[in-house]
Structures are given as structure tokens and as C-alpha cells.
Simulated scan of single mutants.
Amino acid sequence: MSITTHLSPREAKRYATARRLQRCALQLTVERGYDGWTMDDLATEAEVSRRTVFNYFEGKAQVVLGPIAELDPELIATFVAGGPTGDLVDDLVCLAQCATEEGSEDIDALPAVREAIIKDGRLLALVHERFETITEMLAEVLREREGSSFPAGRARLLLRLLLICLDDAVERAAADPSQSFPELLGAAVADARALFAR
């Protein structure tokens, strides 16, 4: 079911404009590099005013990468309590799937985001900063669940492995956009677990 079916006409229009802005920003980044265009260039490319661009996004990083996914506090509480399945890896994957589910309508844009990141060192650095912020937050949540004796290094390793699976799911999205991103992430994790079990 499309996300726009749950939106009012006004919300649907805002959603469409935000998607158009992000697609234009990605295209500009692929063509010119992250530092090779301005928000004014984006406004021109998307055929909107500069003010409209800033009504939707705080800056270039957010328009290219999207906002940082926020997890529902109830999901975090369930995770910390040992749920939803009782298996640490499965439960962490559930958190990642929930975080990516909202943006799964934009699955066809993920390969362009990945291409832009790989081609541009500045954007890659911004992604790394974002990953470090998210890793710190999730490592705390992991240790809250597993106890303070759970090694911080192990928490970071687990989160890095999850990031590799996320990247693999983006590659899978380019090859098969008919599946939802959470499904592709689940498949990537299942393949990784099968390889480690050998």
C-alpha cells in the first residue's frame, strides 16, 4: 500500500515535493559532486523557490541523505526489555527494519543515494559522521539491554555488521525494486548469518 493513501491531499502534495527535491539533489550530487551545487541550484532544478527548499529541508545533507530516522520509544523499550523475539540480532534487525520502513516508498532512490555517497568524499564523510552518531545511540541501547558487562567493542562490531547488511540491501534494491527495503534487509541478514554458520 502506498504511503500517500494515508495522506490528505495537502500532505500528499508536500510528500511529492519533498521527493522531487531529494531526487533533484541526488542528481545534482551525482553530476557535480556534493560541493558542486547550492540550494539555489536545487531550487532552480526543482522549479521551486529557495524558500520552499528550506521549508522542507534544513540543509544539503538532509536533502541528499534524508532526515535521521527516529525510532519509536515503544520499540526501543521493547528492545531493551529483550523483545520482540528474544534474539539480539533478530531484534536489532527488527529495529533497523522499522527505521527503514517509513522510507521504503523511496526504495528506487536508494541506489542513487549510494552512488552519490561513493562518488563524493565530502558526502561520504557526512555519512560517516551520521553513522557514528547513530552507533553511539544504539550501542547505549544495546548495553542497556545486555548489561554493562557487554563489551562496547562488540556492540560497535555488531552495528558495523548491520551497516554492511544495510549497504547490501541497497544493492539488492537496485537489482529488484519490487521488494520492500525491510524485506531486502532481512534477506541480506539471513545470507550473512548463513555464511557465518558455515
Rank of each mutant, 00 (worst) to 15 (best):
E70Q: 10
E105K: 00
D72R: 01
L75F: 08
T78M: 13
P73I: 07
L92Y: 00
C98H: 15
L95D: 00
D72A: 03
E74A: 15
V93W: 09
Q97V: 10
E74R: 12
V89E: 03
L95Y: 03
Q97S: 09
P84F: 04
D106G: 11
A109H: 10
G83K: 02
L75N: 10
K119H: 13
L88H: 02
T100A: 15
D91I: 02
A77M: 06
V93N: 07
E102P: 12
V113H: 08
V89P: 04
D91M: 04
I117V: 08
L92K: 00
V113A: 09
E115M: 10
V80R: 00
D106Y: 12
A81P: 01
I118Y: 10
E115F: 08
A81T: 00
D87W: 02
A69V: 05
D87E: 01
L75Y: 10
L110V: 09
V89A: 00
G103Y: 05
D90V: 07
Q97T: 09
V93A: 11
T78P: 08
I117P: 03
L71N: 01
T78Y: 07
A109C: 13
Q97H: 06
C94V: 14
A99C: 01
V89T: 07
C94E: 14
C98A: 15
E102V: 14
G103M: 04
D108W: 11
E70S: 10
L71S: 02
Q97M: 08
T100F: 09
T100G: 10
G86H: 05
E70C: 04
E70W: 08
E74M: 12
D108N: 12
L71H: 03
I76V: 14
T100Y: 09
P84V: 09
P111G: 01
L110P: 06
A96Q: 14
I107D: 00
A116E: 00
A116P: 04
D106R: 14
R114H: 11
V113Y: 08
G82C: 00
K119P: 06
V93F: 07
D106F: 14
E74T: 15
D91C: 07
E105S: 07
F79C: 03
I117C: 00
I117A: 00
T78S: 11
E105A: 07
G103C: 05
L95A: 04
F79V: 03
G86A: 02
E74N: 13
E115A: 11
I68A: 14
I107W: 04
G82K: 06
E115W: 09
R114D: 12
F79I: 06
T78V: 14
D90L: 09
S104E: 14
A77C: 07
I118Q: 08
E74S: 15
R114S: 09
G82A: 03
V89C: 06
R114K: 11
P111M: 07
A77W: 04
T100H: 13
I68T: 15
E105C: 01
L95G: 02
S104K: 10
G66D: 04
C94D: 14
K119T: 10
D72E: 03
E101Q: 13
A99W: 02
K119W: 11
C98P: 10
P84T: 01
T100R: 08
L71C: 03
I68L: 15
G103V: 02
I68H: 14
E101G: 12
T85G: 05
D108F: 12
A99F: 05
R114A: 09
L95M: 02
L95H: 00
E115H: 15
T78G: 08
L110Y: 15
